[in-house]
Design a protein around this nucleic acid. Sequence first.
DNA 1: CGATTTGTACGTTCACATTTT
DNA 2: AAAAATGTGAACGTACAAATC
Lengths: 462, 462
Amino acid sequence: MPVNSFENYPMTWKPDKKQLASPIYRSIASLLEYDILNGYLSPNTKLPPQRELADYLDINLSTVTRAFKICEVKGLIYAVTGSGTFVAPNVGNAIFMADSEENKSFIEMGIIEPLDCSNALVAETIKRIVTKNYLEKLLDYRHPLGMPYHRMAAKKWMERFNMDVSVENIAITSGGQNSLTLILMSLFNPGDKIAVDTYTYPNFIELANMLNIHLVPVEGDTFGMLPERLDAICRANHLQGIYLIPSCNNPTAIIMDMNRRKDIAKVINKHNLILMEDDIFSFLTPQGYLPISHFVPERFVYSLSISKSLSSGMRVGFLAYANQFAEKITHGIFNINIKTSSLNAEVITELINTGSAEKIISQKKEIAKERNLIYQKYFLKENSNENPLSFFRWLPLRQKYQLKQFEQNALEHGIHVYHSHRFLVKKDKSDQFIRISLTSAKDSDELEKGLCILKNFLLNIE
Amino acid sequence: MPVNSFENYPMTWKPDKKQLASPIYRSIASLLEYDILNGYLSPNTKLPPQRELADYLDINLSTVTRAFKICEVKGLIYAVTGSGTFVAPNVGNAIFMADSEENKSFIEMGIIEPLDCSNALVAETIKRIVTKNYLEKLLDYRHPLGMPYHRMAAKKWMERFNMDVSVENIAITSGGQNSLTLILMSLFNPGDKIAVDTYTYPNFIELANMLNIHLVPVEGDTFGMLPERLDAICRANHLQGIYLIPSCNNPTAIIMDMNRRKDIAKVINKHNLILMEDDIFSFLTPQGYLPISHFVPERFVYSLSISKSLSSGMRVGFLAYANQFAEKITHGIFNINIKTSSLNAEVITELINTGSAEKIISQKKEIAKERNLIYQKYFLKENSNENPLSFFRWLPLRQKYQLKQFEQNALEHGIHVYHSHRFLVKKDKSDQFIRISLTSAKDSDELEKGLCILKNFLLNIE
DNA sequence: CGATTTGTACGTTCACATTTT
DNA sequence: AAAAATGTGAACGTACAAATC
């Protein structure tokens, strides 16, 4: 029996009943979308409970649920059982480089640049390659997974980081981000669920959103993700996969130690998850760590990006995977890219085979060390498991702020930093931090200046 | 009231009732998946009607529908209203190059290779570039959409094909296939529907499948897709987009004439569709054609691949789009690729700016002309709207065959060709054809030999 | 800590569109 | 051309789980 006395109920959003046409749930969804996109509903507004709306519109509860689901998938709203449904805070937290910021008016400590000091060496290598007589062989579109010679180099480079895998299980991709796209598209379906650290790489979050793959945050301690929590969530949720950056989690900078790696691997095996191990920062990790993939040989996908370590501009990445995924990934490569240019793969191969690669990473580690020392002049490192050579640091805030407001405020003081909300799957009232990039300032002096501004800025507002 | 007398009903698939646990629909889906993947159900087997299965299992009809939906999304089965549900024929019709086929034992007339005669010119260009003093500038990861200079070259190249668009509405991608991925991921959501020609590019079909985007085939005549049919389907279906290759539809080789382009554009505007215009073969089209995008300036995405026209190995593509899509596409590029290597874009830019590009396409057109003449010695061209310089031809079969069987049979005779079923969204009893690639045989002699084998082969089996 | 609020998941009913007979 | 077979999509009712008070 409908109760038609809701005219006085304080509903934050009242769709126009007259505008409801069949299918009702779609009507509701588009009215809601319209009102959000046109600013009639501001971010974080709490929408009426689904039951109230259903009563008010004189329709069934699940019809409202469905309508809300559409908007949630589009990222317009988010819902929390028990508390309600809310208009999403301004969408798009992915971190990306503006198209033209040649002359920045601020010190960059947001984006993590790769210390492109190596470009001179890369340029030399390119010059050397074009003199080779097989140059034309690099220009056709055979070998979608990469030329055997390039895959051998990839194998060699992986071994350097204790990842042992056969050439048949390696593919060349167009960079780390491209590897992630490839993995998500090839091995997962819309609606699948993947476990991630509470704070994780925002571009992975956004990529998953685009593909309608749901991320489930799992709490961690100072060693990284907690195996018991992962296990509990798996028992309740039917997850398909897990994404980890164990060599230096972005943004927390935690290195996962061997014990934790083994414990996580056990849970992965127990629940048949697909492990996506992003080892982009392995070149900053001390010797002696084995990848988690090592312990789940039947169900791993291992991405070794070279954008941070060797060359960001070449857009080449290495991907290794368990046998069972070979066919799907081959297919995926073909559908997404056809292939990665062999010319680019050749450049990286040459770097690896001539030893230039080693030179580049030791240079970068040197600079990273220096910049971390500078950081410690201003702020304490709170967790001893953080990677000492990390390209970024993770600083707890003592108060709560709004993401945009905080970042904007910092920018007005001349520094660009990222607030921890960007790294959350669901924006909630978790502890707040900022991620401070150490590698994007032009030099040590600029970094020092930036950190100084930051320190004062925090003192003033706290 | 359940009728429990189905023990004798000839059901092709009987799931074990005892194995059904809650959620029922998931149980059914996984049992079905298991039986298909393990070969207990062979391709094209007709499954019991959903109603029968529901009765047999003593559950509701829609529970079965939902279970089947899961398997359909995964590509394991397909359903046709009125006729039933069937186990999908062996999945994966996308056309792709085996990883190592250096020494083929057959004549290649399946894959469409790009006539890589241009590679010498490209190699020269690369050698020239590495001597430039701005080489290092090409190695960083600024300019996700492409450096301004490269986007200018893209604009110039688009103008060459009568596509007029501002530099702000152009991005550099990692090739045509990558552009398609980008468009589908950035502008569409899982579950969206896109109109395509009855016979269309198989890699687009498979890409859409991966992203769970539904393709709706629209009939055409000798001029290409029929505007009335498109209009009718839009009125019944709520489509979000349309994908067309008007300069030389793959596989039918039809050029859409100006009248048809305008009529299709009207329908696109009427129903607010997003037009995806794939102009990969524009370099083979006579002067005087305007892209369909020209007539839908608010809702087009225009992909100009250079893989077939200039260089397949560089993996560079150009993408233009209406204002409203700029933000989403920028985001998409960042999520999928971060960017395309500027080195590669520079090579293509140099080709365009020095006039080498013109030289390459006139060379290719010359060869295409010659090979089409050879083709006409063996087979008639049936439709006068087919592109006379097409890299492939479309030959009607007089009888019906099974895709795999036909192709395998041809292969045993020493020729590789593709059967029309690969180009269908839903495999049905449409008219059958084969697509014959003219550009992949090593030279004219080999092509002639291949066509000769084909002619005899068809005579023998028909 | 237990009751209440609120969102989620699943199975059901029914009207309808398309294909086949 | 009408009837039967068959899949699809919308809306509904109920049980449950998580968050809050």
